[in-house]
Amino acid sequence: MIGRLRQSLSPEKKSAAGSWRTWKWYVGNYAFILPFMLLFAIFILRPIVASLQMSFFRWEIFGPKPFIGFDNYDELLNDDLWWVALRNTVYFAFLTSALLTTIPIFIAIALNLPFRGRNVFRTLFFFPYVLSASVVGLVMRWLLGQQFGIVNYLFGTVGIGPIPFIADSDLVIPSLSVITLWWAFGFPMLIYLAGLSNIPQDIYEAARIDGARGWQMTRYITIPLLRPIILFVAVTQLISHFQVFAQPYVITNGGPAQDSFTVIFYMFRAAWTYFRMGFGTAMAVLLAVIIMAFTLLQFRFGGRRLEY
């Protein structure tokens, strides 16, 4: 039918029909992504633009809202508390991302082996991920408390401690990282399990015939073929942990002193305790820029020679 139509049309008409078909093709495809784009525009893009705009105003929710240019950014860059918060955030984000990018690989490899009860272990390892931050915080405060904590009690039975896991300046960030490792472990593990199931078995069989054994196959086959997945996990973990809030908020309240005071914690405090929305959003914008910069660096250095 279309062929006959084309034959009967002049070149101009043929061109017009082509444009119409192309346009219809585009409309059809855009219609499919329209629901997402609408939701994205309303719930993501609009708040981003509003935040950026808000950061140029002194806005305290009620009362006047004067435009102050870059004053919020100027104040932030001269605010020593911002630098304390940023230092703590970077430390936490890198430490936690490193733990959550590497350790789940080996657990996923172990849980990918055929053994009885494998699914039980997969469920147990994933379970903490479904807990809310407040539950994790309460549990960890009970576990790691210096006087009444179960961990210190157990250490005490063998003559160790008590160790001030969440009350010591040097230990608090590593402690929060380990807590986060336990809590968020399930997601990267699941991603790695999905990645492992996509590695063709015949590669392992060929390696086995060539004499490769356990660790060699992990080192030279599994990890190289997981590299795109590792990059994905590393990027998403770093982005996620740069935005750390719940753990210091619930477990340490930013202490001891300000040693677990993080950027989002400061942003929350500025906006919702000091009612300084403009200053708070300036922090959010700066943090977004910093996260973007680190993400680009990860792609720049981690994305080379990826084997898909």
Partner: peptide, 20 residues
Amino acid sequence: RNWLEIEAQYADAMARAFES
């Protein structure tokens, strides 16, 4: 009018000293 922000400054300062 910004008492909460001011209080946080002197309270944090003392926490840094007392808990050091």
